[in-house]
Design a protein around this nucleic acid. Structure first.
Lengths: 249, 249
DNA sequence: CAGTGGTCTAGACCACTGA
DNA sequence: CAGTGGTCTAGACCACTGA
């Protein structure tokens, strides 16, 4: 028998989030074991003194995360898997490295305003001739080159980026702090490619080494396009991890 | 003013799914336009004669799909984007090609039972020495080689696969029809690599051509590991597309 | 059959945004 | 302030599973 969950009804955090966090914690601590059933929703209702809809909202979250599996007519069980954490969703390079236990930094190659070419304008939903901020950085992990990143943002909204130091800071941190802008949704494509001479030199590998090429368009909460990024990752040092859930029906 | 939604309370389909499908349809048909607010939840309640929780369950689904964006204190708006369909979730090769308007087929290289090596056993959660089905196929799109796939499944559960014709059929179709097994969750890693001589010949490209290497472990609804796949995609013909949503908080 | 999850109701109060 | 989405209650009935 595991310790019962405790709720703090005075806390600002919604009850269903407190429950989700609590159950997630018990799973991660091994108090609820993979493959084994968790208490029924009605048991949680009694134990916690909340309504069943609240319990379900909490468990829904864990089901979406892949930690729980519901079985109609039977019980809800802890998913058999150890799912790689942070595998869902998307992250900035800085966050990505941090989640792998590495420290991110940058060598700034370019930071300037320029007129968008047709491809970039289309990716950012801008008109022809509109200006963008161009940021080119070699991204380092524990001081070693990991990726080469070319990033474009609309100048009209993000012009003040030109005054920021982007060698140590996460771009996403700056967007949040200085522009109150939170990236929320990304459309991404991944392909394999070979590095040309210049790219290879900047990444410290041989010409024609393989690389992962990721292109991403990112939107903020209101759905505005904020960023078009193209990143070349060294194939010998980088592997992209994620978890996918099958779509309905 | 768009046509009001119609619900069929006799239908087996849950009301919240009917509402979600209806609103999704209005968005796709352009009756609800990108960037514009949709009716408030209370308006739907009146219009449809359902409770607000039901309306919210429907809209929750569309928010998770990235079609809607909620704004606390303001209204809920249609997301600015045209998100690539089928970009979330994961698909079998056959489904993937179909979603791109291509016809999938296979050239079967191997279909046999063998003893799992340590790596495959670990991926499938089997003990050392347990048997697996090994399926190796060149995957074709409209008759042209697109990918080279090595797939392993536990022999104990899927031994009857040896009797199936896997040149035209989707493996996932067979799993569903013959084994009542539905793949639901996949843990995937993507990296870039170069093809060796034999792989290149099977894909009809030059040696040392770049390729995307995807490794996937797949689970069914109860969370059992059912499949470990390794797929090499030709870099010149294949690009992986997906949509990511930012996590938590 | 008892127990489970799946859906739904008809309310309530809150926090937030903009006029 | 009125109107929005965010959370929550205390029930109800259903479909499904396994004994």
């Amino acid at each position: 028998m595991s310790n019962p969950l405790r709720l703090n009804k005075r806390d600002h955090k919604p009850l269903f989030k407190q429950i989700a966090d609590g159950v997630r914690g018990q799973i991660e601590a091994g108090q609820l074991k993979a493959g084994e059933p968790i208490p029924s929703e009605r048991e949680y209702v009694e134990q916690l003194g909340v309504s069943r809809m609240t319990v379900r909202a909490a468990l829904d979250e864990l089901v979406r995360e892949g930690l729980l599996v519901r079985q109609h007519g039977r019980s809800t069980v802890v998913a058999g898997a150890r799912i790689h954490k942070n595998a869902l969703g998307f992250m900035s390079f800085t966050e990505d490295m941090r989640s792998r236990g590495l420290e991110a930094s940058s060598r700034l190659l370019r930071l300037e305003a320029e007129v968008a070419d047709a491809a970039v304008a289309a990716q950012l939903g801008l008109g022809v001739g509109e200006r963008v901020i161009r940021i080119e950085r070699v991204r380092l992990a524990n001081g070693e080159p990991m990726a080469l990143e070319r990033c474009f943002l609309p100048h009209a909204r993000f012009g003040r980026l030109l005054e920021e130091d982007l060698t140590q800071q996460s771009l996403y941190d700056v967007l949040e702090r200085r522009f109150d802008c939170r990236p929320m949704l990304a459309e991404e494509s991944i392909e394999a490619t070979l590095l040309d001479t210049q790219e290879a030199r900047q990444l410290g590998v041989a010409r024609n080494s393989p690389a992962l090429l990721a292109r991403r368009s990112t939107r903020d909460e209101p759905g505005q396009l904020i960023e078009a990024v193209q990143t070349l990752y060294r194939a010998d040092r980088y592997r992209m991890l994620f978890v996918r859930r099958r779509q309905g029906q």
